[in-house]
Write a protein that binds this DNA or RNA. Structure first.
Length: 501
RNA sequence: GCGGGCAUAGUGUAGUCUGGUUAUCACAUAGGCUUGCCAAGCCUAUAACUCGGGUUCAAAUCCCGGUGCCCGCACCA
């Protein structure tokens, strides 16, 4: 489906819509409706079950979304997360450097250092557009973080976090104690991050307020024990950086073991790369032939990332491969920076007396993007019907409950819907229109099962107190006793966990 | 942020060039009749010119600005 077509469908069905729509919307902000809120929550729960389930040393925490200035200074966000901006010392108005230099330098200022921009301003005697003063400052970066006034005086500077990762790094000393002083130690966060993006676009792919699912694993680089044998033979659809530099974006299917032995990647990295890939393939059920693991070259990745593969999905709605998540080997950059920033040595002493500043392996991604991918890849036309083939554990509604003939079967069906809801099944009762229409509505919402109360259900015959259960994907029906219905429907609502035994 | 394009009921649209009666049609939604296991039919109802300003006797239509969306570039530590 094309992007605007898909977005229109999602809006119509109440999956999501723009924030403050009646005021014309707000760029980069979206609200999730009933189907979207539930679907997103289920995606987040499936993510947590999968990744925290990788090891008994991995934990979920929920840190605050606001960070003191010292934190973002240490992390580098204050200086790097920016666009150059010039201020007038005379009237104190601020202007973007590229705007103010439009006439003398139409090609823009990208790639120039603040000093070089200042030289151009000086050389051309550029004046302030507001007061004509030449007292223009050396360009200061325009910050892509949302700053807030904090405390009673409002003078304390704080920021909405631009990524959840920092929160996890800050938690490390505390988690070191809580986790019984052992490495590796995994800290997972599912939470909001905020970026004042210049050009929010593509709906859920570039938002100003979005959710991240991140697992930060702290480990001793000389000793990271894990059951690599379990993933040894798994094949991964990779595009290596070297091949890309040689001009080919073609996917190679490479066994995990080969990536370690011939590909020079550490086994702990490949182990987590395999599980990240499997999350998209086996948990979100995205088609394998639409996924690839794209290695970032030295030039592309951030300087502190030693290894980076992006996990990308080929999305028709967005015209190609888009990043859903990534696995970053960040070395000891983060704890080193926060060690300096806080003045507290974050290295730890393990049993046996070995002292180490832990390295970080980061598994990151965004559930907003997962949701869009799940819509793009699993929501499709099948003849004249639209079917959202969500796995049952992600579906916002597990079962629709219908009376075949409302007049005759409404009371029974309503009672059944209440009973199922009380048993913890997400059901939706519907008696509007024809039975075919109700099935179609449920297909479009991704509901895997439809329960229909018919004449036989309420008769005295052999099928008394049985209902038909119709399967979304096969459209086949089976007759199930009402007594075993909640067990029947509930069986498929648990999301997959990684193999541990 | 730059350049280009676009904006009419819940969705998709006609009408805009060339200003002029009650803004077209389909689907969707709600109610009724009928039917009763895969979006059937008939009747009825709900529902829109993105916002602000200007030109004009008269603006969905022309002009200016805001906002939002799409595409390209840039950005995405």
């Amino acid at each position: 489906m094309k992007g605007d077509e898909l977005y229109a469908l999602l809006r119509r069905r109440g999956v999501l819509w723009p924030t403050a729509e009646i005021y014309g919307g707000a760029q980069g902000l979206y609200d999730y409706g009933p189907l979207g809120a539930k679907l997103k929550r289920r995606i987040e729960e499936a993510w947590t079950a999968w990744f925290v389930g990788l090891s008994h040393d991995y934990y979920l925490i929920e840190p605050a979304e606001i960070l003191p200035e010292a934190v973002v200074r240490a992390s580098g966000h204050l200086e790097n997360f920016t666009d150059p901006e010039v201020t007038c010392e005379n009237c104190h108005q601020a202007f973007r450097a590229d705007t103010i230099l439009e006439k003398v330098r139409p090609e823009g200022v990208d790639g120039l250092t603040p000093e070089q921009i200042a030289d151009i301003v000086h050389e051309h005697r550029v004046r302030c557009p507001n007061c004509s003063s030449t007292a223009l400052s050396v360009p200061k970066p325009f910050n892509l973080m949302f700053g807030l006034d904090f405390g009673v005086t409002g003078r304390e500077r704080v920021y909405l976090r631009p990524e959840t990762a920092q929160s996890s790094y800050l938690s490390f000393p505390r988690m070191w104690d809580v986790g019984r002083k052992a490495l590796p130690l995994g800290v997972a966060v599912v939470g909001k991050a905020y970026r004042n993006e210049i050009a929010p676009r593509q709906v859920l792919f570039r938002m100003r307020a979005f959710t991240q699912t991140e697992l930060q694993i702290f480990f001793d680089p000389s000793h990271f024990p894990l059951p690599f044998g379990r993933v040894r033979d798994e094949s991964l659809p990779v595009v290596r950086a070297a091949r890309r530099l040689a001009g080919s974006e073609e996917v190679e299917h490479v066994r995990a073991e080969e990536l370690v032995s011939a590909g020079a990647l550490p086994d702990f990295y490949v182990f987590h790369l395999v599980h990240s890939y499997h999350f998209f393939r086996d948990v979100l059920k995205l088609p394998a032939d639409r996924l690839r693991l794209l290695e970032k070259s030295d030039q592309e990745r951030a300087f502190y990332n030693r290894i980076q593969f992006d996990i990308e999905a080929n999305l028709e709605s967005l015209g190609g491969f888009k990043e859903l998540g990534a696995v970053h080997y960040r070395g000891d950059y983060d704890l080193g920076r926060h060690g300096q920033g806080s003045g507290r040595d974050l290295s730890v002493t393990q049993t046996g007396g070995r002292s180490v500043l832990p390295h970080v392996l980061e598994l990151t991604g965004g559930p907003d993007r997962y949701l869009w991918a799940v819509a793009d890849l699993l929501l499709a036309q099948d003849g004249d019907r639209t079917v959202w083939r969500l796995p049952p554990y992600l579906a916002p509604v597990t079962a629709g409950v219908f009376p075949l003939i409302p007049k005759a079967h409404r009371a029974y069906a309503l009672r059944l819907a209440d009973e199922l809801a009380a048993a913890g099944i997400d059901v939706q009762y519907d008696d509007a229109g024809t039975i075919g229409k109700r099935y179609a509505r449920m297909d479009e919402a991704g509901t895997p099962f439809c329960v229909t109360v018919d004449g036989e259900t309420v008769s005295d015959g052999p099928n008394r107190d049985t209902v038909t259960v119709r399967d979304r994907d096969s459209k086949t029906q089976e007759r199930v006793p009402v007594a075993s219905l909640s067990a029947h429907l509930g069986a498929s609502t648990r999301s997959p966990r990684p193999a541990r035994a």
